[in-house]
Simulated scan of single mutants.
Amino acid sequence: MVASASLLYLAALAGILGVVGFFVLRGVLRLWAQEKVIRELQPRLSKGKGSPQEHYELGSVYLQKGLYEQAIVQLKKALEVAGENIPPVCNALGFAYFSQGQYDLAIRYYKDAVAADPAYVTAWNNLGHAYEKKNLYGPGLEAYETVLNLDPQNAIAKRRAESLRKRLQPSSRG
């Protein structure tokens, strides 16, 4: 009886350690992949022009690592090299500025993303969120309603639009 309880305990412990080990390994592999991108792209891009895709890729890695200033430099370079607004790059720039609390700049780049691709649901959701942070509930609601026109099942837009509708309703207090 004691032996089977000990065996059960050891099996549970081994299972828990296996799950934790999996997540640690996954995190280490993700970090390794990010560092590999930085090691390969950073020296090349600092010497030459590079493609918009390369600058976007490096900027995206910097975003994932929370290095917003470095991300902004690379993402702006991607737009400069491309000579046009690329929706995912504009959205990523918006996210970088949003993450730093620079909501006006975030709104600018989210607007650039949806102007370049009016069906870009993620950028519309992000634009709505940035408007909310600025307490601009009307424009925020409009952005979420655009999402719902494009993707009626979008859970984020449904939830946020309902919240903003409640905030915009006139108070029933007399």
Rank of each mutant, 00 (worst) to 15 (best):
E69D: 10
N85T: 11
D117W: 06
R108L: 15
G128D: 01
A143H: 02
A82D: 03
T122Q: 13
A113P: 14
R167S: 07
K77R: 09
I107M: 09
N126Q: 09
L150K: 10
Y103H: 14
Y137T: 10
L67Q: 14
K111Q: 14
E69M: 04
V37Y: 04
T146E: 08
E84F: 03
Y137I: 11
D151W: 03
A78K: 03
S99F: 05
L105V: 02
E40G: 02
K158F: 01
G101W: 12
N154I: 04
A123L: 06
N125G: 12
Q102S: 15
N126H: 09
D117S: 15
G138V: 14
N149T: 10
N91P: 13
N125A: 13
V114M: 04
E162V: 10
R108A: 13
G66R: 07
G59T: 02
E145S: 05
L168S: 13
Y68K: 04
L164R: 06
K111H: 11
R108M: 15
Y144L: 04
Q42H: 07
Y109R: 03
Q42E: 14
Q153P: 03
A71P: 06
S99W: 00
Y109C: 06
K133H: 12
A92T: 12
Y103Q: 11
L136K: 11
E84W: 03
P43A: 10
C90L: 11
Y68P: 05
G50D: 03
A123F: 04
S99Q: 10
S51G: 06
A116W: 11
R44C: 02
E69F: 02
L67I: 07
V89S: 00
Y97M: 04
A82N: 00
A119G: 10
R165G: 11
A96N: 12
N154P: 08
E132H: 06
N85S: 09
P152R: 15
L79P: 07
K166P: 11
A155F: 02
A161S: 15
P139Y: 09
I86D: 02
K47Q: 08
A143N: 07
Q53D: 01
A96W: 07
Y131K: 02
D112M: 14
Q70V: 08
E57T: 13
Y56H: 07
S46V: 09
A119N: 13
Q100T: 12
K111S: 14
I156F: 08
Y56G: 01
Q53C: 01
L41H: 03
L79R: 00
Y62L: 09
R44A: 14
Y97K: 00
A155N: 07
A123T: 06
L148E: 00
Y56T: 00
I107F: 06
D104V: 13
W124D: 05
K111A: 13
Y137H: 15
H55R: 02
E40W: 06
A96R: 07
I86H: 01
I86Y: 00
R160M: 06
N126F: 04
A157G: 10
L150P: 09
Q70H: 12
Q64I: 03
L164F: 12
K65V: 05
N135F: 13
